[in-house]
Nucleic acid binder design. Structure first.
Lengths: 237, 237
DNA sequence: CGGGTGTTTGATGTCATTCAACTTACGTGG
DNA sequence: CCACGTAAGTTGAATGACATCAAACACCCG
């Protein structure tokens, strides 16, 4: 079902002994989903480990009154469901394809067993989890002390960091309304924040396409009040 | 300097082989700090792993314009600095005693080596990190969709969860102004949120002492719009 | 007793949400 | 290919929540 080479190229599974790779390969399944498909629901039991090969997925929860909270949005080389390994059903969320996606799933109990037996795998997981934790901490900081435009600007800079040229052209990776809730604001607020930041930093926008002639203005706008050491790792890539 | 028994009773170090415990004991140092002391600064190099034996510490960052962000507040049986193990200097923060405290520090490089060599230790760390990640996710949700009173109420419920009696008396564990920034709001907002919640839920307050005759009102007030399954694990303890 | 810190209270301003109307873009079926 | 319906995005006005500023108050400790 899945090629061993595919798994070996995943950095989460780097440096693992061949038999572990084989074991993962035996139980891993690959899936294709169309945009908009629910991959699993927060209420169902079989929430498994998910690794994204291609496309975007969103993890989300719904509060009792129907408000949706974005837990995370992931694309290729990122994964979800590691928290099911040991916390059981404590933290649950739903998972939906927000573009056409290709993912790999691995049953939780298989992965748990492998983690318990293999040191290198645990180490890899631990390192990734530390990185995720760091990202979360920064997002908490964003939410608590920065306003809507600054949060959006920070997000844009992260998109820019992948490009090295002066004259930057980027595309918003998914729907604006989704990006809005990802950044902890309403769609209307997002819309206003985007036009504000475009006006203030000389950015041209057309749909999901943005043209940034002068990134330093944006950096100035965003990073000035950030606690991260400048230039921050997001910008460095 | 440190008793092996002390280390053995720490659940992070549970199930470790004796020689690992001994090795940790050899390098661990215990420290006492008075309330208000800076334990380490975000700019200095020797940020080490910290385990709290007694009292409270706060982890915080300062943005360029002087605004302080609380990264976390920890008391006994909790630890900080695990992110220095592999991320190097990527994420930094300062650490301050907010009560008289007793802590254990372990040099990062020693702990890193032990983690790389010992599977059980890595597994313990991994599990704890997953729990922390979960806490962070919930706090993100709090910040993005819940108002000041609800966040405060949720915090109060967590304090209550340790008590089992109907008629609950609790004490705020540290300064109100600190708790305010911990909850992502100003001291003034905190003050108003507290009086609002006291009024709405029949709570009597006197300084840091709170008397909650009827917790169900508070639960209703706080949990109604939360995405966690009710009753949430915070309340369960 | 005086001074510092932490907390409360009121008045005001700013930012984000809400609600509603409208526009744009897109896919479907006629 | 166009008309239509739906969903996404934008815009404006009103409301609400929180921050800010300033002043008063409480408390502790020397």
């Amino acid at each position: 079902m899945i090629n061993e080479n595919t798994l070996q190229s995943i950095s989460l599974f780097a440096s693992l002994p061949p038999q572990v790779i084989t074991e993962i390969t035996r139980h891993a399944k690959s899936h294709y989903y169309k945009k908009g498909t629910l991959i699993f629901d927060s209420h169902e039991a079989n929430q498994s480990f998910v690794y994204v090969l291609k496309g975007w997925i969103k993890l989300f929860r719904e509060s009792t009154d129907g408000a949706e909270v974005i837990v995370d949005i992931l694309n290729e080389q990122h994964f979800a469901g590691e928290n099911f390994l040991f916390n059981g059903e404590q933290e649950t969320y739903s998972c939906e394809a927000i573009s056409d996606v290709e993912i790999i799933t691995i049953p939780t109990h298989i992965l748990r067993q492998l983690v318990e037996e293999n040191h290198q795998l645990t180490l890899n997981f631990f390192k990734y989890t530390l990185q995720k934790q760091q990202k979360l901490t920064i997002e908490m900081e964003n939410l608590s002390i920065r306003n809507a435009s600054q949060r959006l600007g920070c997000f844009l800079l992260r998109l820019c960091s992948l490009k090295k040229n002066k004259d930057i052209a980027i595309h918003l990776p998914y729907d604006k309304s989704l990006l809005a809730s990802r950044l902890g604001m309403r769609a209307e607020t997002f819309s206003r924040a985007l036009s504000k930041i475009c006006h203030d930093c000389g950015i041209q926008s057309d749909g999901d396409a943005l043209h940034i002639p002068n990134a330093s203005e944006l950096i100035q706008y965003v990073c000035q009040y950030c606690s991260q050491t400048y230039p921050c790792k997001y910008i460095m890539g």
